[in-house]
Amino acid sequence: MSRLSHTFAELRTRGRKGLVPYVVAGDPSPDGTVTLLHALVAAGADVLEVGVPFSDPMSEGPVIQKGHERALARGMSLQRVLDMVSVFRQEDDKTPIVMMGYANPIERFGYERFAAACAKAGVDALITVDLPPEEVDEIDGALQGVGLDNIFLISPTTPEARIQTIVERARGFIYYVAVKGVTGSGQLDAEEVSRSVALIRQKTDLPIAVGFGIKDAESARAVAASADAVVVGSALIAEMDKKARSGEPLQEIQIHDAAVQLLQSMRAGVDSSPS
């Protein structure tokens, strides 16, 4: 059983909802990323989403864009993200890692080569924001060849017939994008999310994670009422950025702590969800 299906099966057995933090690999610093990932697990993360920095992150709002820019300015590359996952795996062989990024760095790396490197490093699944089902065959085939999952996105604008086509191809889990917009934007409508999740659930038994627009314990709690897992990214990065700019002399671990505290409160929110 893969790490992902094991994790979701265990959550289901225990009647718990998953919490999935997203951070950009290399932000705030390449040296600190592995430490941050371990700290997020300790704070209650069930699955980790690791962003691969890209020069043109078209689906990201300003907070995550800046994270990508900082990481690239510090010399991050796809290979270095893979190396970080390898190091993380030396101490944690249980928490699933989902890599999230854009097509071009992967295409440049080579799809087959990338899939093999992911498997070797201990990556479990991939979300490529700009590879919709129409463009995903090549990477999906390469990932399947090494037993990794390609995660498909469904959005509020996805027509019902298309949802059917997508779930038939999906493995691992479904990622429902809760708002029309970029990461960190928009006003979350928990009722709309609940209706959409119910619709998707009629068509698949795969777990459904919901992301975009979830920023605190309250919104995490609301979404966890219907979703199997809650994804949070911009809010964590914004907290770390705020701390980093506070002007005090800080160790990087103190910056991480800002994200850890928010995640802990969201853990409590998710666990108190009435589902």
Partner: peptide, 12 residues
């Protein structure tokens, strides 16, 4: 060519 965009734009 192709359509390399986020799912939200596909129906548009």
């Amino acid at each position: 060519g192709g359509k390399f965009v986020a799912e939200t734009l596909m129906s548009a």
